[in-house]
Design a protein around this nucleic acid. Structure first.
Length: 419
DNA sequence: CCGCCTTTGAAGGTT
DNA sequence: AACCTTCAAAGGCGG
């Protein structure tokens, strides 16, 4: 079982929150490296203009059948294609979606966009983690067990820098220490993971809807934006690398939303109203029948969102950078880039996000003990099952989490014999 | 205005 | 156990 080095935060033991799937990504390391070396070899010559161009072509030339075709789409090496044809496609797809359709790959490859962007922040994310106070039951919290990568050959990374991730957490206002919070909350469910990310988005309309029964400390008065989570408005820290970060507190611990009459109450960002719209005034509701009210009430229950997984945390942190560097706006394209970069991360780099995600889940569990992912099933309208099954014949993600059929559909340049 | 796209991971459900 | 489905974020886009 792959384990993080001791740097993993000093936690050990079994991790009931651990994600077995996390191991997947690291497993075929050899192939990954192989792919990566090929990838990087082909990368440098592509510039941002190409990427943009390819993206433009994507929208313009969707009729062409290529997912994200572009001028950069070049012929694949026969060896590479052959290897995939020999049965590596699953692994390649799972680990390297970029190895899929050339069209989509090249359209988004843009290594120059990806060049060394992520590394700095990952380290800061890790530093951030290391700054977490150790859980009271340290022995019960195992080291993160992210997938293993043999990234020994990876180039050394630069000096850790402060990252947006840090900005997410840092606060110019001192907040109660987690211990204090735990005390205020009541002893029945002490929070053991106080300083977590809280990458959840904050919806303006969600103010004051926290269904917690615990009482929260008075929240600091952070600047709020209707469109952005307050974390994004924190000034960037100025501490030099290596300098202990100021203590920050998980937003969920600064909520105060359950404190009646607290004007500045900030709910846990994972909680959003069902539609993000204002609730009806009480007198409005009184006009409705009881049955209607009941249904409505049910529907109006604030939605507790799923905790973000490692990749989501990574995306949330890196999205802005990708947008800035690539001047892209379409999330679909950005996500493809981020997916590629995610696979390009070293084991250690990914481990930091896995650890963050683990803590997120842990905190989420503590905040919403009865919550289940099932609770949100159906709340988000999904594409029709029909359509889904259409793509299923090829449309479903395979065991490796990819959509082989889509890949094939968007790879017009691949000879049928290869497909 | 709503759903799709696109990514990976987690979790719950089904076979 | 293996596989399948849904949701989490995000913002442009199309119907």
């Amino acid at each position: 079982m792959p384990q993080l080095d001791s740097e993993g935060g000093g936690t050990g033991g079994s991790d009931d929150l651990g994600a077995p799937d996390e191991l997947l990504a690291f497993q075929d390391e050899g192939e990954e490296q192989d792919d990566k070396s090929r990838d990087s070899a082909a990368g440098p010559e592509r510039d941002l203009a190409e990427l943009k161009s390819s993206l433009v072509n994507e929208s313009e030339g969707a009729a062409g059948g290529a997912g994200i075709p572009g001028p950069a789409a070049g012929p694949r090496g026969e060896a590479e294609v052959g290897a995939e044809a020999l049965g590596r496609e699953h692994t390649s797809q799972r680990l390297f979606p970029d190895k899929l359709p050339e069209s989509s790959e090249d359209g988004l490859k843009a290594p120059e966009c990806a060049s060394g962007m992520y590394k700095e922040t990952v380290y800061s994310a890790f530093n951030l983690l290391m700054h977490y106070p150790p859980p009271s039951g340290a022995g019960q919290h195992p080291q993160p067990q992210p997938p293993l990568h043999n990234k020994a050959s990876q180039p050394p990374h630069g000096v850790p820098q402060l990252s947006p991730l840090y900005e997410h957490f840092s606060s110019p206002h001192p907040t109660p220490a987690p211990a204090d919070i735990s005390q205020k909350q009541g002893a029945h469910r002490p929070l053991q993971t106080p300083d977590l990310s809280g990458f959840y988005s904050l919806t303006p309309g969600s103010m004051g809807q926290l269904p917690h029964t615990v009482s929260w400390p008075s929240p600091p008065l952070y600047p709020l934006s209707p469109s952005c989570g307050y974390r994004q408005h924190f000034p960037a820290p100025t501490a030099a690398p290596g300098t202990p970060y100021p203590r920050f507190t998980h937003p969920s611990l600064m909520l105060g939303s359950s404190v009646p009459g607290h004007p500045a109450a900030i709910p846990h960002p994972a909680i959003v109203p069902p539609s993000g719209k204002q609730e009806l005034q009480p007198y409005d509701r009184s006009l409705k029948t009881q049955a209607e009210s009941k249904v409505e009430k049910e529907a109006k229950k604030p939605t507790i969102k799923k905790p973000l997984n490692a990749f989501m945390l990574y995306m949330k942190e890196m999205r802005a950078k990708v947008i800035a560097e690539c001047t892209l706006k379409e999330s679909a394209a950005i996500n493809q880039i981020l997916g590629r970069r995610w696979h390009a991360l070293s084991r250690e780099e990914q481990a930091k996000y896995y650890e963050l995600a683990r803590k997120e889940r842990q905190l989420h569990m503590q905040l919403y003990p009865g919550w289940s992912a099932r609770d949100n099933y159906g709340k988000k309208k999904r594409r029709s099952r029909e359509k889904h099954q259409e793509s299923t014949t090829g449309g479903k993600r395979n065991a490796f989490g990819t959509y082989p059929e889509k890949a094939a559909a968007s790879a017009p340049f691949l000879p049928m014999t290869v497909l």
